[in-house]
Amino acid sequence: GLPEGWEMRFTVDGIPYFVDHNRRTTTYIDPRTG
């Protein structure tokens, strides 16, 4: 799974992105792969 505090969501286009609730940021880069 994802690191603690992270969540995976999808855009309206079906593109996955990642929400970091710890820092309240979003990124398209998987936190597991950097």
Results as ranks from 00 to 15, higher is better:
G1L: 14
G1R: 13
G1S: 13
G1E: 15
L2N: 03
L2W: 06
L2H: 02
L2M: 08
L2T: 02
P3L: 04
P3T: 03
P3Q: 03
P3H: 03
E4K: 10
E4G: 10
G5W: 06
G5F: 05
G5T: 04
W6T: 02
W6I: 06
W6V: 07
W6L: 02
E7P: 00
E7I: 07
E7N: 02
M8E: 08
M8V: 09
M8Y: 03
M8T: 04
M8Q: 10
M8D: 00
M8A: 09
M8W: 02
R9N: 06
F10S: 03
F10T: 09
F10E: 07
F10W: 14
T11A: 07
T11P: 01
T11G: 10
T11E: 04
T11I: 01
T11R: 08
V12K: 14
V12F: 14
D13S: 12
D13R: 10
D13F: 09
G14D: 07
G14F: 06
G14H: 08
G14K: 08
I15A: 08
I15N: 06
I15M: 10
I15T: 11
P16V: 10
Y17P: 01
Y17D: 02
Y17M: 07
Y17F: 13
F18Q: 01
F18W: 15
V19D: 01
V19F: 13
V19A: 03
D20I: 01
D20T: 04
D20V: 03
D20M: 02
H21F: 08
H21G: 04
H21K: 09
N22T: 11
N22F: 10
N22H: 12
N22M: 09
N22W: 07
N22Y: 11
R23T: 15
R23E: 14
R23V: 08
R24T: 12
R24I: 08
R24V: 11
R24Y: 13
R24E: 15
T25Y: 15
T25K: 13
T25P: 04
T25R: 15
T25E: 15
T27Q: 08
T27D: 02
T27N: 03
T27M: 02
T27F: 05
T27S: 10
T27W: 06
Y28D: 08
Y28G: 05
I29A: 09
I29W: 10
D30N: 00
D30V: 00
P31R: 00
P31Q: 06
P31S: 02
P31I: 03
P31N: 03
P31L: 00
R32D: 05
R32M: 05
R32K: 04
T33V: 13
T33N: 14
G34T: 14
G34V: 13
G34A: 14
G34W: 13
G34R: 07
